[in-house]
Design a protein around this nucleic acid. Structure first.
Lengths: 144, 144
DNA sequence: TAGCCTATTGAAAACGGTTGTCAAAACTGT
DNA sequence: ACAGTTTTGACAACCGTTTTCAATAGGCTA
């Protein structure tokens, strides 16, 4: 975890080096739309000729998640799937179970509901996970 | 997986045997309130003198989940936590991150919102995961 | 009650995703 | 080019969960 120098905010962090692998992971995330597992991204990189070690893929994904630049979700079996989202603001997802395609969705009423529920029951330090899974129109129509 | 006899529906399934272990898992779930991992439940059983193999704990939990009698959630690191809920109807949870205590919460507006979002984007076969995590009042106050 | 048939059990091994290890390779400022 | 870090990646470890399979034990029938 690179420690940010005080007074230096944003831009290229000191002590962070620009490597082929870091760039490759960032680019593959931009190229695909939809949530992908680390191993899928690793495969995509290999296939596109920009091979990157699986360990390194995990490392960069983790770093991007920590930096808030990538969203991570857990599918039912516990696997983590990642996506670079257009918006950095708090939002939720409508995710296709089959192809991973996803759209950001916004739910002011859900935020309000979660906050109200927490308050009513004396819970503090609230976080919520609100994700909607389904089958997107493309996948639904391309089914026998 | 026991194959149900045609013509016999409900009640004690044919081919399902009442064992000490099956009873013990059911009882520990009733005894604890709050979500617990399989390994925690396994520990609780051992400590209460009703030792049950870890494999068997997993098996019965799985069966109860399949039967809709137990709810299962995934915590951030991917671990599964289980709870027998008072209500069988569709509901969500407000879960304490520290002690696992949980209250069922209801969110008609969330259901409506999820359905509306899915419709607007052409997604079908919708399911959603909506869980709220926080720190319950007991855990918050018993903190140094 | 004895015996049979099948469901169940659980120790151990397999599994799959993820993380730690550590020596080698690669950046970047000088 | 050099030095001094950071980064890389093959490999092993980890951890929760599932599978395997021989041993055990319900529960029915005679």
């Amino acid at each position: 975890m690179p420690e940010p120098e005080p007074g230096d905010s944003g831009g290229a962090l000191p002590g962070v080096r620009l490597t082929r692998q870091r760039t490759a992971v960032a680019e593959v995330l931009d190229r695909v739309d939809g949530f992908r597992s680390a191993q899928e991204l690793h495969d995509l990189l290999r296939r596109s000729g920009e091979a990157v070690g699986l360990t390194t893929v995990y490392r960069h994904l983790q770093a991007l998640v920590d930096a808030g630049q990538v969203d991570v979700l857990r599918v039912v079996d516990g696997e983590a799937i990642y996506r670079r989202c257009p918006t950095q603001d708090h939002h939720h997802h409508l995710v296709c179970r089959l192809c991973g395609r996803s759209v950001e969705i916004d739910g002011p009423e859900v935020e309000a509901w979660a906050t109200r529920m927490a308050g009513e029951h004396g819970f503090v330090e609230i976080s919520h996970s609100v994700e909607v899974f389904g089958t997107c129109s493309d996948c639904a129509s391309s089914r026998s």
